[in-house]
Design a protein around this nucleic acid. Sequence first.
DNA 1: AGATGTGAACCAATTCACAGCA
DNA 2: TGCTGTGAATTGGTTCACATCT
Lengths: 261, 261
Amino acid sequence: MWTAGHFGLCAFVHNYLPWQVLATLTPGLISVPLSRANDVTRRGIPEATVARLPIYHRVLTQLVEAGIATVSSEELAAASGVTSAKLRKDLSHLGSYGTRGVGYDTTYLVFQIARELGLTLDWPVVIVGIGNLGHALANYGGFASRGFRVVGLLDADPTRVGEKIAAGRDGETVEVRAMNDLETVVIEGGAVIGVIATPAGAAQGVCDRLVAAGVTSILNFAPAVLTTSAGVDVRKVDLATELQILAFHEQRKHADRQVRA
Amino acid sequence: MWTAGHFGLCAFVHNYLPWQVLATLTPGLISVPLSRANDVTRRGIPEATVARLPIYHRVLTQLVEAGIATVSSEELAAASGVTSAKLRKDLSHLGSYGTRGVGYDTTYLVFQIARELGLTLDWPVVIVGIGNLGHALANYGGFASRGFRVVGLLDADPTRVGEKIAAGRDGETVEVRAMNDLETVVIEGGAVIGVIATPAGAAQGVCDRLVAAGVTSILNFAPAVLTTSAGVDVRKVDLATELQILAFHEQRKHADRQVRA
DNA sequence: AGATGTGAACCAATTCACAGCA
DNA sequence: TGCTGTGAATTGGTTCACATCT
């Protein structure tokens, strides 16, 4: 039997931003306030900015491919769907990579952003749950080109195990493994990032096993709130939620129309 | 040939929040500041709150199904992965639906949230681009139960046209139609919400056609910045972006580890 | 000249702490 | 007594406007 109290126990999640958590865990470091203040100028990039850097990176990559050597903040901002002030403030957190009176060198800037985001490194990723969504993720072209390498695909359905799926853009395939192999796959592949694309009911169990095996960042597509230990980053993408937010605004539009009439 | 100027022209996007835009468009209404202030107390729910209501709705639905009649803010917050203060502030924007000293009636609250989100209405949706992702979206169970009805599936690949896909949870199927039929499908289905799951290159064209056919809310999975006229809501879900944000934090963790060592 | 980089002002969101009610 | 609902304080993010540099 469920009770409210029991249910309440089951979840305590920090959904993102482990900065404070990490600071708290750092043992006996008195200079934390100072070092954080230093962070803000030299390393600590605002979360909102981090969330936009991938967009700038993609747009800049297109510009470089199109052979454009220089952009102004105005142009880059327009192509990224933000205001130029916001763009300049964002880039200022990385350093002074522009030239006054001229603009930004696209090649140089795209590299600086890539470095800041860690895209110059190799990130082994495992994907758990190979339904339509898992499939879509596995052969999503955008991963390989940005340093993400699919080192493992796992599914609970025995009929799916053994299937070979194209992962990455250059025709490599990865074989679907059984759930039992989860720990092996994570450890052998050296994965620190895990993607959960299972049904909601299975998500927490998978999450626990991933973390136990060494994963420290999780992207969760299952419509469930995940509980993890501190130090593990969890990001959530919920398809239904996104539609519901749209529906809310849609409803407001209709209400407005009625009020006006 | 591309020039920076040309490229810069191609995109100006308001990514969300058409409040100010709408206010600006409202013709000759001098009381706008006042009416907005009124909005904030009576109807205007903060965007951050709206984004969390779907989570509360899902968790509450589970509680109701589990036969739990009452929850405290503490319990509901824990199960939703937020703090209790945040939860109470969020709910306070909807009205006073709790009982001091007791908590919230789950059945009553779930209905109030559903009403606020417009989930008690019927939202016809079209999905464009039936690759793996489009497939996953089409037969995602969470839609039907929340008032979303898939009235159209469209794909540019002629070999895919005619395929019947399970959409919604009760085994109904919807047939994939050709791109030419886009306008017909949108208008006949009465769709106001469109989902774009095409490759990046096709996204803007599809977006324009959807908007021209009457769609006013778009959920975009293509890694491209969309330009739309004011009054159209665009939300973006970018799989690569999410992973890149995780990679950033992951890199930071490793940097920290090195500093400590 | 012309565009960046940035302090200052502004606005939104979160957290605190407690008054008010069942 | 216990939990909601909410002003007040704080933190984080955006916008403005201009000093600064090529």
